[in-house]
């Protein structure tokens, strides 16, 4: 029996694309290779017996090559989908993308219509899931103004959607300095007026530093809570529907669900 070659890569779009390039050009054959990405905590999944592990160092030039081939040989839409899947929290996404690309490069742009194919279908489902969460967060992100005028927001999404939501806010608030901080991954999207927004790893950011509000900020938080309370039609109260539309996991970072401290 041939030894299986397992390519271990970083949990990022570039890491996964680099591994795809190396696995593809390795000449081992598609059936004999497997891709594995680092878990979010930085470790890998269970080790397998009778296989050889190959560590992949992320290489931007290789990653760009893969991006370009997907865009030109499959389609822009497929590329966007693959990127969103690479940002998801699905375990085994690197290998899934690899299998999808084998089919994609063979069939071309039409691959997106092969919905009854297992791999294509999985890609579709994960893509939709990531898209939904990103869309939800466009609404659920809450900024609070700091003394120096900086807008700060913290989120805790399942998928790594920061890079999907940041462009929306940069477009919406061009004159504001803002931070959207992903608590789970210690990453943040930063924006300064007149410049491109950037994605940064911020291991020593402390949320506590951003909890001192000005009087004006406190006033608007109160006003928002007042509005939220008074817009309810009492005869129609329906917690099931509310929970269905706005899952509890988002509420921790939302101003209107903060318990009132006064009284």
């Amino acid at each position: 029996m041939d030894e299986k070659k397992i390519f271990l890569c970083d949990n990022s779009i570039d890491g996964i694309f680099t591994a795809i390039y190396l696995a593809w050009s390795s000449g081992f054959g598609h059936a004999n290779v497997k891709l594995e990405e680092k878990c979010e905590k930085g470790s890998f999944a269970n080790l397998e017996l009778f296989s050889e592990y190959i560590k992949v160092n992320t290489d931007l030039t290789l990653s760009v090559k893969v991006s370009r081939s997907i865009q030109s040989k499959i389609s822009e839409e497929a590329f966007q989908m693959v990127c969103r899947v690479a940002l998801s929290d699905y375990i085994g996404k690197a290998d899934l993308i690899y299998r999808f690309l084998i089919k994609g490069f063979h069939i071309g742009g039409g691959i997106l219509e092969h919905l009854s194919d297992e791999v294509v279908n999985k890609i579709f489902k994960i893509n939709k899931n990531v898209g939904f969460e990103a869309h939800h967060l466009l609404g659920f992100v809450r900024f609070s103004e700091q003394e120096n005028g900086l807008l700060f927001s913290s989120i805790e999404p399942k998928n790594n959607v920061l890079s999907l939501i940041a462009p929306h806010f940069a477009d919406r608030l061009p004159k504001e300095r803002f931070i959207i901080y992903d608590k789970k991954r210690n990453m943040a999207a930063l924006h300064i007026p007149g410049k491109q927004w950037i994605l940064a790893e911020v291991p020593d950011l402390k949320i506590g530093d951003f909890r001192a509000f000005t009087d004006q900020e406190d006033e608007y938080r109160d006003l928002w809570k007042i509005f939220f309370k008074h817009i309810v039609i009492k005869e129609r109260i329906n917690p099931k529907l509310q929970r269905n539309n706005l899952p509890l996991r988002f509420r921790g970072d939302m101003t209107e669900f903060e318990p009132d401290i006064e009284e």
Binding site: F140, F228, V232, N238, N245
Partner: peptide, 15 residues
């Protein structure tokens, strides 16, 4: 497509 910003206790979207 519109964006819902929160949902009030009656389950209706607040946009």
């Amino acid at each position: 497509c519109g964006i819902c910003h929160t949902f009030s206790a009656d389950g209706r979207c607040i946009s």
